[in-house]
C-alpha cells in the first residue's frame, strides 16, 4: 500500500571544500512511500529550485545499487537503516510519517567534502592503482577452464569482487579505516591463480598506500561488514592480514 509521508530533513549543507558547513532543515511534504531515498531528495531539490535556493548536491549514477556512487549517512547509518542496500535502493516505506531524518556526508580525513553530501573518494582509487597489474596472457582467447579454479574459491573471489567502492565501510568504521575495502580488493585477486604472481607486491603496496592516505586502523569493531551494501565479510580483512604477513616476512 502506497502511503504519503511528511518528513523533516536535517541536511548537511556546505558550499565548497574550504567553506564551513552546517545543517539546514527542510520539510519534505507528500513523499510517496514507493519513492527511493534519492527520489525523495529529487523532490526536495525541485522545491528548493523553485524557491530560488541552491539544490542539495549528492552523488548518484545507476540508481540500482551497482555503481557505488550514492551514499550518505542517514540517521547515523551509512546507506540508511536497511541491511545490504545502497542509498538508491532504500525506499521511503522504511520511514514513518512525521519522522525527522538527519542526512550527512561520509566523514573521514581521507574523504574531503566537495559540496553538501558529495565527498571525494579518490583515495579509494589510489589504493586500487597501487595494486598494479595481474598476469593474464593476451592473444587468442584461452580455452575455458585451462586454469582450474574450484567453485568454492571462485565464489569467495566473487564475493570480494562484489565491492562497489562506495566507501560505506570507511563511513561506518568508528576509526574511519579502509581495511574492508582494501581487503576486498586484495582478496579478489589473491584468491585466484591469475593474481598469485604479484600477490606479495600487491599486498605490500596497497597497504602502504592505504596507510599514507590518512585512514584509521581497524580494531575489529565489525561495523563495516554490518553496513556494507554488498555484505562483504571481514573474513577478507583476516585474509589481507595473512597476505601482508606472508609478503612482509616470507618474500
Amino acid at each position: 500500500m502506497t502511503k504519503t509521508l511528511n518528513l523533516t530533513l536535517k541536511v548537511w549543507r556546505q558550499k565548497g571544500q574550504n567553506s564551513k558547513g552546517s545543517f539546514e532543515t527542510y520539510n519534505a511534504k507528500g513523499i510517496s512511500s514507493d519513492m527511493s531515498f534519492l527520489e525523495m531528495i529529487d523532490v526536495i531539490n525541485e522545491q528548493l529550485t523553485i524557491d530560488g535556493i541552491e539544490p542539495i548536491a549528492f552523488d548518484h549514477d545507476c540508481r540500482e545499487g551497482i555503481c557505488g556512487m550514492c551514499g550518505t549517512v542517514v540517521n547515523g547509518r551509512p546507506h540508511g537503516p536497511e541491511k545490504g542496500t545502497t542509498l538508491c535502493q532504500l525506499h521511503m516505506r522504511h520511514f514513518s510519517d512525521g519522522d525527522t531524518i538527519v542526512v550527512e556526508p561520509w566523514r573521514s580525513r581521507a574523504f574531503k567534502v566537495i559540496k553538501d553530501l558529495v565527498v571525494d573518494r579518490s583515495a579509494l582509487d589510489k589504493i586500487i592503482q597501487a595494486g598494479g597489474y595481474i598476469s593474464v596472457n593476451t592473444g587468442g582467447a584461452p580455452d575455458a577452464n585451462a586454469i582450474l579454479v574450484s567453485q568454492e574459491t571462485a565464489e569467495k573471489a566473487m564475493d570480494a569482487a562484489a565491492c562497489i567502492g562506495c566507501g560505506a565501510c570507511v563511513a561506518a568504521c568508528p576509526n574511519a579505516s579502509a581495511m574492508l575495502f582494501t581487503s576486498a580488493k586484495i582478496s579478489q585477486l589473491a584468491l585466484l591463480p591469475q593474481g598469485k604472481p604479484e600477490a606479495a607486491k600487491r599486498a605490500m603496496e596497497m597497504v602502504r598506500t592505504m596507510d599514507g592516505l590518512g585512514f584509521g586502523n581497524c580494531t575489529n569493531e565489525r561495523e563495516c561488514e554490518a553496513e556494507c551494501p554488498k555484505e562483504i565479510s571481514i573474513v577478507n580483512i583476516a585474509r589481507m592480514n595473512r597476505e601482508f604477513f606472508k609478503a612482509a616476512f616470507l618474500s
Partner: peptide, 22 residues
Amino acid sequence: LFFQNIAARPARYEVNKNAGGR
C-alpha cells in the same frame, strides 16, 4: 593507534548509531 584513529575522523557525525558490530 587510539590517537591516529581519532585523527582519521576530524569532523564527527551528528548522529551516531551502531549497526550491531560493536
